[in-house]
Design a binder for these strands. Sequence first.
DNA 1: AAAAAAATTTAGATTAACCTAAAAATATAT
DNA 2: ATATATTTTTAGGTTAATCTAAATTTTTTT
Lengths: 220, 220
Amino acid sequence: MQNSFTEENYLKIIHALSGREGHEVSTNALAESTSTRAASVTDMLRKLAEKGLIHYKKYQGVRLTESGEKVAINVIRKHRLWEVFLVEKLGFGWDEVHDIAEELEHIPSDHLVERLDAFLGHPRFDPHGDPIPDAKGNLTEPDYFILTEVQIGEKVRMMGVLDHAPSFLQHLDRAGITLGCLIEIKEINEYDKSASVQINENHTLFISLEVSKNLLVQRR
Amino acid sequence: MQNSFTEENYLKIIHALSGREGHEVSTNALAESTSTRAASVTDMLRKLAEKGLIHYKKYQGVRLTESGEKVAINVIRKHRLWEVFLVEKLGFGWDEVHDIAEELEHIPSDHLVERLDAFLGHPRFDPHGDPIPDAKGNLTEPDYFILTEVQIGEKVRMMGVLDHAPSFLQHLDRAGITLGCLIEIKEINEYDKSASVQINENHTLFISLEVSKNLLVQRR
DNA sequence: AAAAAAATTTAGATTAACCTAAAAATATAT
DNA sequence: ATATATTTTTAGGTTAATCTAAATTTTTTT
Ligand SMILES: [Mn+2]
Ligand SMILES: [Mn+2]
Ligand SMILES: [Mn+2]
Ligand SMILES: [Mn+2]
């Protein structure tokens, strides 16, 4: 039997919330993320456990089984490939694609995903810098730093975002901070930890701590 | 409020069954097409009427309202555009795309459809020769002939199919009958109405009445 | 180690989309 | 014009995914 739209969303969210160590996810955390009530989550957890997609013991939180992990990663693969399509082929902005990809990720055809992947040239990262799992389900999170960890004088490359909200992405657009751009920390204000940064050895601007906290970068 | 996947399918099917004159569609015909029971159809008709998408009087069949027609045509537009995408960009065969397009047609984003349309170069016809409604909802069915109406000696162009079943399309592939190809009727067997036809002034072959009945062609 | 607080589950409803069986309306045949 | 057959609707259920309110379990605080 097939997994429903709703089931796939639960698995994807459990995957996201359980982190790289795959620790237990609580009922309340899921209620928050799915915008439902805890009681509804409990019902769904019983069903997912029944189908062998999660490990679930009452009151103890949940983890994905191997089979659940496989489903979750496939949904993530589809989400990110569709986002690449929307940005690279249809010309959407990176701030516009998430909601559409939330729908497209549930279209059920392996054949479609593999052809889409090939059409896009087997991209490794989505428009937000998130890694795309391969067809076998291997997903390797590159280990980037958060910009707040970078020292004055260091030059780093912008590789991703932690916040995917359109308003944050639009803010980056206005600041000229795009995926792959060079960032040099010129100065950090002691008072509010805001920073003066130079983008692409070019223009200089101030960014708040809030922004720094959500930028993933790579040392070179 | 938005229309559900199921509601959209009903509207699309009512559109298809009511023909170009937009005549009444019966409950049983809808039950047949939706693979549900008549009682379920009645339930849905009450709901669609409630929403102002159909004209419905008990026992009298249904017709689309203007608003229902608009929704139906938009779904058809999306279906056909996605089919073009799947064939032209992803390299699927025309026999493989219908079921995937059945899912994609319900992705709800006007922005997406318009960008997809532009990306595909505003195609006028889908891979089966069916016309694609424009962004304003204008859908003009070209008036083609059925191959059975064509006389011996006539040369016509293949413009579409009435049967969209994968098995029929694959049969045409094997016979080398593709959209746009030239067909000349060489001979018609009185006994079973099978025909000997020449494709692209090239190879000759026999086709059954069953095949002729499902080929749409244009006189030149 | 109680008591209090927080998290989670259970109980009992609701809504959309389906179902079967029975009743009612319409169409067809004698 | 009746009787018969067909079509359609109504009545009463089911399942998935949600809800609120109440009960239970776990965690935290005193
Ligand atoms: Mn996304
Ligand atoms: Mn993304
Ligand atoms: Mn189709
Ligand atoms: Mn088609």
